[in-house]
Design a protein around this nucleic acid. Structure first.
Length: 212
DNA sequence: CATAGGATCGCCT
DNA sequence: GGCGATCCTATGT
């Protein structure tokens, strides 16, 4: 039983198998996407893809607040083939291709018509770690580094753009609350990454990071 | 139809 | 810390 330092601090051991008790739909309908993004820190994200279950504790998120956030794909309610999924009510996956290479996994949130999304930027693998590592080309890194980045976590969990629209209440991609206690001072808020084009909105402290 | 650029990563120095 | 990879999306003619 592996018990890394930070997991000891928060009182759990890996592996953390899925309970299949999914975070309920109501949770995703919250219109305050910034506090919702913060609340995802410490929740456990699982996928069951190609008959393999893998999962990890969410360690990093960013909020993208639909219409009034210049960094959002849906700024000024811009509705295109790519972004239309964001206008649904919360609880769906929005996955898009970035830099031609990386699949970025977002959680659509808010009520219908509010195009909010939360980018999941990092997880700490806690279930199916061998499979995760194999999908990451057996990269030789500490567990906490294997999926520390938005493109690397989708690779590790086998999420790709075809999962756009997948309901997070099904058995493909879902979140569970394992009651991992995160103290408020264990979360750092800061500016979001890679959005220099967003003007003043680039300075908003809407990135949340678990310190461990 | 043509074009620019991106919510990144890994490898190189 | 610098840079190339790689391709889809959005926008404009």
């Amino acid at each position: 039983m592996v018990k890394p330092e930070f997991l000891s601090k928060i009182g759990i051991e890996i592996p953390v198998p899925p309970s299949f008790k999914k975070i309920p739909l109501d949770y995703y309908l919250e219109n305050d996407v910034v506090s919702l993004a913060k609340s995802f820190i410490g929740k456990v994200l699982y996928t069951q893809i190609d008959n393999v279950i893998t999962g990890g504790i969410i360690t990093e998120t960013e909020a993208y607040r639909g219409p009034d956030d210049r960094a959002s794909h849906a700024y000024e309610n811009r509705k295109t083939q790519r972004t239309k999924i964001m206008f649904n009510s919360g609880g769906l996956a929005y996955v898009y291709l970035c830099y031609g290479i990386h699949q970025m996994f977002n959680i659509v949130s808010g009520e219908e018509g509010m195009p909010h999304a939360i980018l999941i930027r990092g997880i700490y693998p806690v279930y199916g770690v061998d499979s995760i590592q194999a999908r990451r080309n057996n990269i030789n890194k500490n567990v906490r580094e294997i999926c520390a980045g938005p493109g690397t976590l989708t690779q590790g969990l086998n999420i790709n753009v075809s999962h756009t629209g997948t309901s997070l209440l099904g058995d493909t991609i879902w979140l569970e609350d394992h009651k991992i206690h995160i103290h408020p001072n264990q979360i750092t808020a800061g500016p979001r990454i890679g959005i220099d084009y967003a003007g003043d909105d680039a300075n908003l402290p809407w990135r949340f990071l678990l310190n461990y």
